[in-house]
Every structure is written in structure tokens, then in C-alpha cells.
């Protein structure tokens, strides 16, 4: 329990050790601790961001799906509309063609009838003239009786 020069020596050792620790021990350890803290903070932030991104992406996917479904519906509706329009048009065209054909046929038939009537009328006139010739046994002057024949033809109509 005495005081001696050990006190001074110990004091010097004390500061040398402290200096060594300050110079070579403390900074690398504190640096490593701080770096690790930063790394962990960054990792946690990245994880949070990834989670948020994932949620956002999921939302987007749902939205896109909904849009796709909607547009598919639109396409189908318009296609159906177009198809029915095409069918309507075709139907209209067909009925128009049929009507025209019928009309043409009717017209053709009317003309033929008329022609047949005309021919028949001529033949009847000739027959009548020939008949009359035979009945009268005499030649009839065509020029004199043309007027008479025309009147007869008129009456036959």
C-alpha cells in the first residue's frame, strides 16, 4: 500500500493503450458497425419497396385483365353487329335481285303474249280473207278492199 513511480509508469501505459485503441481498433469496428447498420436499413427499405412494387404490379395486372376483357367484349359486339349488317344487306340484295328477275320475266312473258296475239290476228285476217275469197268464188281486189280489210282487222282486235 505504497505510492511510488509505478503511478507515473502506469499513467503513461494508460495513455499509450488508449492511443493505440483510438488509432487502430475503434475506427474499423465502428465503421463496420455503421456499414452493417446501413446495409440492414437499405435491405429493409428494398424489401419494403419490393413489396410495394409487387402490390402495384398486381393491381396493374388486374386492371389490364379488366381492360382486355372489356375490349374483347367490344370487339365481339361490333363483329356481331357487322355480321348481322352483312346478312341484312345480303338479304336485301337478294330480294332486290329476285324482284328484278321476276319483273323481267313478267315483262318478257307479256311481250311474247302480245306477239302471239299479233301473229294470231294476222293469220285470222288472212284466213278470213281466204275464206271470203272461197265463199265469193271471185277474186277480190286487194287494193279496193284494203280499207275494208283494215276495218275488219280493227274490229278483230
Amino acid at each position: 500500500m505504497n505510492l511510488n513511480a509505478t503511478l507515473i509508469a502506469q499513467l503513461v501505459v494508460f495513455f499509450i493503450l488508449a492511443w493505440f485503441t483510438m488509432k487502430f481498433v475503434w475506427p474499423p469496428i465502428v465503421k463496420a458497425l455503421d456499414e452493417r447498420a446501413n446495409k440492414i436499413a437499405d435491405g429493409l427499405a428494398a424489401a419494403d419497396k419490393a413489396k410495394a412494387d409487387l402490390a402495384l404490379a398486381e393491381k396493374k395486372v388486374v386492371e389490364e385483365l379488366r381492360k382486355a376483357r372489356e375490349s374483347a367484349g367490344d370487339v365481339r359486339t361490333s363483329a356481331e353487329k357487322q355480321a348481322s349488317q352483312l346478312i341484312d344487306e345480303a338479304r336485301a340484295e337478294a330480294s332486290r335481285i329476285i324482284a328484278a328477275a321476276r319483273e323481267a320475266a313478267e315483262h318478257e312473258a307479256g311481250a311474247a303474249t302480245q306477239r302471239a296475239k299479233e301473229a294470231l290476228r294476222d293469220q285470222v285476217a288472212h284466213l278470213a280473207v281466204a275464206g271470203a275469197e272461197k265463199i265469193l268464188r271471185r277474186e277480190i281486189d286487194a287494193k279496193v278492199h284494203a280499207k275494208l280489210l283494215a276495218n275488219l282487222k280493227q274490229e278483230l282486235q
Binding site: M1, L3, L7, Q10, F14
Partner: peptide, 11 residues
């Protein structure tokens, strides 16, 4: 050792 302990506290 009193000297050593007091040496550190003197520091």
C-alpha cells in the same frame, strides 16, 4: 497496486 490504480485515475 495502489500506485497503478491511482496512476490510471490520475490519467
Amino acid at each position: 497496486d495502489l500506485s497503478a490504480a491511482l496512476g490510471m485515475s490520475t490519467g
